[in-house]
Design a protein around this nucleic acid. Sequence first.
DNA 1: AGGAGTTTGTGAACGGGAGAACAAAACGGA
DNA 2: TCCGTTTTGTTCTCCCGTTCACAAACTCCT
Lengths: 221, 221
Amino acid sequence: MTARTSTESARDIPEATVARLPVYLRALTALSEAGTGTCSSEALAAAAGVNSAKLRKDLSYLGSYGTRGVGYDVDYLRYQIAREIGVTQDWPVVIVGIGNLGHALANYSGFRSRGFRTVALLDADPARHGEMVAGIEVQPFSDLESIVAEHGVAIGVIATPAVAAQAVADRMVACGITSILNFAAGVLSVPAGVDVRKVDLSVELQVLAYHEQRKAQGELA
Amino acid sequence: MTARTSTESARDIPEATVARLPVYLRALTALSEAGTGTCSSEALAAAAGVNSAKLRKDLSYLGSYGTRGVGYDVDYLRYQIAREIGVTQDWPVVIVGIGNLGHALANYSGFRSRGFRTVALLDADPARHGEMVAGIEVQPFSDLESIVAEHGVAIGVIATPAVAAQAVADRMVACGITSILNFAAGVLSVPAGVDVRKVDLSVELQVLAYHEQRKAQGELA
DNA sequence: AGGAGTTTGTGAACGGGAGAACAAAACGGA
DNA sequence: TCCGTTTTGTTCTCCCGTTCACAAACTCCT
C-alpha cells in the first residue's frame, strides 16, 4: 500500500501499529469529551475495537505512558500519540480534482479537526474555477507550483478521474510534495522517497461481495 | 477490519489475497480494453503494482489458469477472478446518509461498473427526501426494511455522521443485511456473521503525516 | 525430433504481527 | 508496614503473509 523508501527511522514503529494509532487517538478524544480522566487498556481497547494485549503492545512502542494498577491518563496519552503521529502540528494540504469526491473531501470536517488544513482546491476544468467549495475558491491546476511553494505543502490528495491521476502525481512530485493520498483508480508510480496511500472504494465493496457470496454458498450446503 | 465469523469456506483464500483480487481484476480490464490478449505474470504484476511472485501465488489459490511458457489469457483470467469474487452477479446496495460523501458515493461510477447496483438512497433528514441524486430519489430512512426485503439487499453503505452510524447499523442488521461498508468514524459493533469494512479518510492522512514527520526529522540529522 | 528459451506453479525459508501468559509495579486497606 | 488487588509492559509462541528459488511445462526454432 505504502511505498516506504524514505530515510529509516531511529526508533521504528511497526506499520501495523502506525495504522492503529489514529484509531486510538479518536477513541481517546471521545473519552476525553465524555469527561473520562483515566482509562484502562481494556476500556480503551474496547472503544477502539481491538484486543487489549495488542493495544498495550502498540503503546509500548511509544514509551511507558501508563501507570500499573491504574491505567492511562486520557489527555496525557492523547497528547503523546498526537505528537508521535505528528498531528500536533499544522499540515497544509492541496486537493486536486473537485468532482463529487473532491467536494466531499473538501467538506470533510475530519481533516480540519486533526491538524490538516486544506490550503487549495485545484481542478483542470476552467468551468469550475472560481466556484466556492467549503469556503475555498477552486483554482486552476496550473497554480499548483506556486501554492505548494507558498504554503510549504508536503501532502497532496488526488481525487481526479483515473486517466489524469498519474500526470497529477508527476506534477506534485516535481514541485516537492512527498506524500500522496490517492482516490483515483489504478497504480501510481512515484520515485523513491514519496509515500503513496491508496483508497479504493470499489475494492472494499468487492471484498464484501466475496464474503457475501461465500455465506450464500454455505447456506446451500 | 473485517469481522469474519461466518461460515468457514471449503477452499479458503487468504484475506490478503482476497483484497488484491479486485486490483488484479481492474488491471486485467485495463489490459483487455487496450487490446491485450495474453500477458505474463510479470506484466500483470507491474500493472497491478505488486510483486510477480506474489501475483502468481495469489492466482494459484484460484486454480491453474495460466499456461507455462506463455502467460495468462487476459479475458479468461478476468472472468475467473470476477466469478471468484462474485462480481459476475448483480449486488443490490443501499446507501444511507446522503450528505457530501453520500452524494459522491451515489455518483461513483466504479460501483455500477463492477456489479453493484444502488437500489436506494436513504436519509433521516426530511428536507432531503425527494431530492434526485444520480438519477435516484432520496427516500426516508424508515423505508429501509421494505426496500431491503423487496430487492434482497445484502450490502449496506453507511455514510452518516458518526453519532448515527451505530443506530443505522443496528437497523440494517435487524432487517437482514450481512455486509456493511462503513465510512463513519468510530467502531461499529455487530453480531457474528455480519462483515464490516471500514474506510476512514482521516486515518489515511494521519499515517501519511507520521511518515512525513519522520522524513523531516531525518533531514535535520 | 530435440534443444534452447520462457513462464507458470509451488515448496521452503523468512519476517512480522497477533494473542496468551506472566512478571513487575503501583494502589488500597488493615 | 505488609498483603491482596489491579493493571501495565514484555516475553514467548504461533500463524499468516511475503519472497526466493526452482522444477515442471509449454513454445519456438533448427
